[in-house]
Amino acid sequence: MPGAKSRRHLYIRFGSYLLGLMLFYVPASLFVRAFYGVQGQHLVGNLCDSLNLRMGVGGLLKIETWQKVFAADPRSLGIFAVIAVAFLFGPLFCGWVCAAGSLSEGLSRLVPDRFKIDIAGRVNAAAIRYGFLSGFMILPFIGLSAGCAFCNFRILNFMSLGITGGFVPALTSTYIVVIALWLVLGGMFMKGGRGWCNFLCPVGAIQNLFHGLGARLGFTYKLKYAPEKCRTCLNCVKVCPMRAAAPAAEGRWRTANGAGVLFNRHTCITCNDCVAACPHGALSYGVGKAAVPAPAPSPQPAGAALGAAAGRSEV
């Protein structure tokens, strides 16, 4: 059962997701409206006035995107802001304001755990997602895109428009596929409810890529692990919505009790659920080194091999 600290953290996080809905999705989309307002333009709040992060990622290798950035188009600037934040502070967009991810995560809480798939330590989701991201960014060079037809942000825009009495188009088969993968298979029936985020979200992938680079520097914010305080209770593994935490192999860390935990920097969304769930204060979020590894007793630590095999960077 989650403690009071965990529950409070969860309420704060869901509150921030609601704020994210207001900031980035129509009919409110306050972020884009405010940005255009500063430029002296008036908006009515249609679908195109929301933040198109997925399109932004798809066009990152194209010159046109950069031209739009220099023209201060907020819909293109958004992706650069999100990447900069991810580099310095971790993928806070995913962990704190992405209403699309929070919807599937929330739905997952409605289904008992015994009916859910748990991918923790079984599938290298980060590698699949990076592969998807590379395909996503290559497609524009052969005149294609995997943007709108398979965009869960767009579907969430339609949903929020529908709830507020706006126009909702008919469901096409691509939207049905997306809803099935995002909300049903990757949401309700996946532990953590972040299956879509884990395997298919290019916006999350590009943030984790930059977080993986940024976390190597001392001045950036990241999840920090103090093995000497860890008692391997595995509360962090149970609560992680991205299934980024997994038990470490024996000998990886010199912990207070047990083998400790490994965190995958390439799937962690810095939601800090694990920090709130840790009763021993072994996890924190801040600047400095991610972890101080204890001297390994064996020449080839088994945990390091596990981490490399699962595409993990050390935490």
Binding site: N124, R129, Y130, G131, G135, L139, S145, A146, F150
Partner: peptide, 13 residues
């Protein structure tokens, strides 16, 4: 594994 992800993106496109 990344090749499977790449394949998925190409099919979607």
């Amino acid at each position: 594994m990344a090749l499977f992800g790449l394949s998925g993106a190409l099919v979607a496109g």
